[in-house]
Design a protein around this nucleic acid. Sequence first.
DNA 1: ACAAAAATATATCAAAATGATATATTAAGA
DNA 2: TCTTAATATATCATTTTGATATATTTTTGT
Lengths: 198, 198
Amino acid sequence: MAKINKTRYIILGIVSMKPASGYDIKKWVEETFSFFWDIGYGQIYPTLEGLEKDGLVFKSTQIEDGRPIRHEYEITPAGREELQKWMTLPVEEEKCRYEILVKLFFGYMMPVEENIRIIEEFRDKKLREMELLKKFDYDIQEFINTKPQHVYPLLTLLMGIHSFKSCIDWADEAIGILKQVQKNNEQANNTDNNKQEE
Amino acid sequence: MAKINKTRYIILGIVSMKPASGYDIKKWVEETFSFFWDIGYGQIYPTLEGLEKDGLVFKSTQIEDGRPIRHEYEITPAGREELQKWMTLPVEEEKCRYEILVKLFFGYMMPVEENIRIIEEFRDKKLREMELLKKFDYDIQEFINTKPQHVYPLLTLLMGIHSFKSCIDWADEAIGILKQVQKNNEQANNTDNNKQEE
DNA sequence: ACAAAAATATATCAAAATGATATATTAAGA
DNA sequence: TCTTAATATATCATTTTGATATATTTTTGT
């Protein structure tokens, strides 16, 4: 099976809701999506070009007064069809890259304090990210009953909260373990010193 | 700041423990690492070549009997230094790509049943992955006291378990929510049918 | 009122990562 | 004996990343 360009479908999905410029897409992704799928300009602009060439989006150039040129992209019926087709395809493997875990795996190379510091930093960041998501934590029950179609973005939000929470819980546990290791080390050092002094 | 090739350091880290062939590295990563950092042959072989050219690893070619050629790579003192240097660098942003969340975000495009099915599949997979990790769940307290340097791989394992657990918890919650939506839909349909019949 | 900073907007590109595939031998199982 | 799994290396087009360049407009602080 050939590799498929997923960015195409992400962008199709975004413009299927509302026409947008490359900049709009980037910003929207950053705010809504980035914790589970981020894209940069280096993907957005070439992909939009390709989608336009294939007739899946329609480009309209707006020049107002002296304002900078704005290219707005709208989904076409063919684009909507293509998106629908992708939606029915089976979900592929998810991918994560945690540099912190790589470094921690080789943590024996570093002083214990340094490893603790790295985990603490990670914990703080995840806490901040979680707080950010929690601001959008609406009353799901109300959504279920009144706007069921809006429940889906909420489900992704929920996943983010669960995920960040698990990072924080892990960090607490890991720090606890390393503090024990640290304490053992200190006691061993003291014993050594006492021996030398005697 | 220029982009840095992290694969170099991952591979340096691996061969710093034990000399290995490209195949060994791939296999080891698959078994130990892949849930937080996966690499393919397409990265391994060119990276090994680059590391050798820079004198960070030493390549020895072994030809035994009629066996296929085996290239084994060993870390050099310069490589060890380079690895140590990277270890002290600040940890960069972690990245995740959850295709399931993208599709779920646009879930209103699909029947509720389909979205539930996708989440159930995801839940099953995460459960299997968690069970796999739990097999290696040693007694941490013992490691802390007797082999503190071996505690680090255990910490990454712990993260995996936490992470998979959070996916399962989320899936259960999400399925519960969508089942409510489904029930509401069915009731609405029944009311419609009754109205038509009257 | 003025300067600085932030937001809006598009674009490019080298380097890195992905994922699929090709090839060939040896060991293990049916 | 035949087939499958494991060992082993290699390539490559496509995709993704991350950094940077450019320029205008709006907002903010002094």
